[in-house]
């Protein structure tokens, strides 16, 4: 009897694609009481519609899927997959009660959220966003285009395949995802993320200290002899060799200015480029760990930056 039902209550690929499409609207009605609950039910509806036909069955199915649910919006996909399998079995007459289904959902959502946040919000989006922003700032349209396409391809592929994985694997998936595999992914993504952050901090934080520390007159023999060149040009005897000589002098490191100005920024760059952005970032991390809100820090930096500009320290 149960075996026979199993074929009758089978979700087709089309049903599962339908659930996948709707799962993208998981957070549409995110609320402070049960968070993603309606979105979850909304995603399940194509399956529930197929599996249950009577009004009572449908009402109780909806009730069980309107319970509290909240996880990373993409990591809900494997949970959906597992729940689809459970609902198939329940509809076919297996003894699975509401509490069991709710237990699977709650059991999976916590660990999975902890995995999705660092991978998607913490690594892929900042890295992709920073890369795209650098293209955009150089005036290239590829910036937004690459960001949009790459992100959505990765996201949709993840949603579909992890939902299918959940569907095929059923209950086993919790162990696999929350266990070794996801931990590896999280760690690997964090290594990549921290490395890229180290690269970005000095490259893309704009801090310049134009404060002049010293002005030194350059000795005549350490400076490119522009006087001779202009004289020759005026007399009309300027030759290619003379120009080559000038370029060679510049390449040899002779100064092209009569006065050498050293700013605070030059001195810092000699130490190691990007020192000031590094210190600023570490300071922000420290503040965040002291539970200072990001908005407060941003406001503080606005005040600091403006003051620095007014007194001439920053520019």
């Amino acid at each position: 009897m149960v075996e026979e039902n199993k074929n009758k209550y089978r979700l087709t690929k089309k049903d599962r694609l339908n659930v996948f499409w709707r799962s993208q609207f998981l957070q549409a009605s995110w609320n402070f009481e049960r968070m993603q609950n309606i979105g979850w039910a909304y995603a399940m509806i194509p399956a529930l519609k197929k599996l249950y036909t009577s009004k009572e069955d449908r009402a109780s199915a909806l009730k069980r899927h309107l319970e509290f649910f909240n996880t990373h919006p993409y990591l809900a996909a494997p949970v959906l997959g597992v729940t689809l399998t459970l609902e198939e079995e329940k509809a076919a007459g297996e003894d699975i009660d509401n509490a069991a289904i709710q237990g699977v959902k709650i059991g999976m959502m916590g660990p999975l959220a902890g995995v999705g946040d660092p991978i998607f919000w913490g690594t892929i989006r900042p890295v992709l966003g920073a890369f795209a922003a650098s293209l955009a700032l150089s005036g290239s349209w590829l910036g937004p285009i690459i960001f949009f396409l790459a992100w959505n391809i990765i996201r949709m592929a993840f949603l579909w395949y992890s939902q299918e994985l959940g569907y095929v694997q059923g209950g086993n998936i919790t162990q696999n995802l929350a266990g070794g595999l996801m931990q590896k992914l999280t760690q690997g993504a964090s290594v990549l993320g921290m490395f890229i952050m180290g690269v970005l901090v000095p490259r893309w934080t704009n801090m310049n200290f134009p404060l002049v520390l010293s002005r030194v007159d350059v000795a005549e023999n350490e400076m490119v002899n522009f006087g001779a060149i202009s004289e020759a040009a005026n007399e009309g005897v300027l030759s290619g060799d003379m120009l080559r000589g000038v370029v060679e002098e510049i390449q040899a490191g002779l100064s092209i200015q009569p006065v050498e100005v050293t700013t605070l920024q030059n001195t810092l760059d000699e130490l190691i480029p990007g020192l000031a952005p590094l210190l600023l970032t570490l300071f922000c991390v420290w503040l965040l760990r002291k539970k200072v809100s990001p908005i407060t820090i941003i406001a503080g930096l606005f005040v600091l930056g403006t003051l620095g500009y007014v007194v001439g320290l920053l520019g």
Binding site: N206, C284, G315
Partner: peptide, 17 residues
């Protein structure tokens, strides 16, 4: 000037996580 600096807050949030 401040606009160039506040990028650091975003980096710090990602690093902190």
């Amino acid at each position: 000037v401040a606009g160039g600096m506040i990028v650091a807050v975003g980096y710090a949030m990602v690093i902190n996580m």
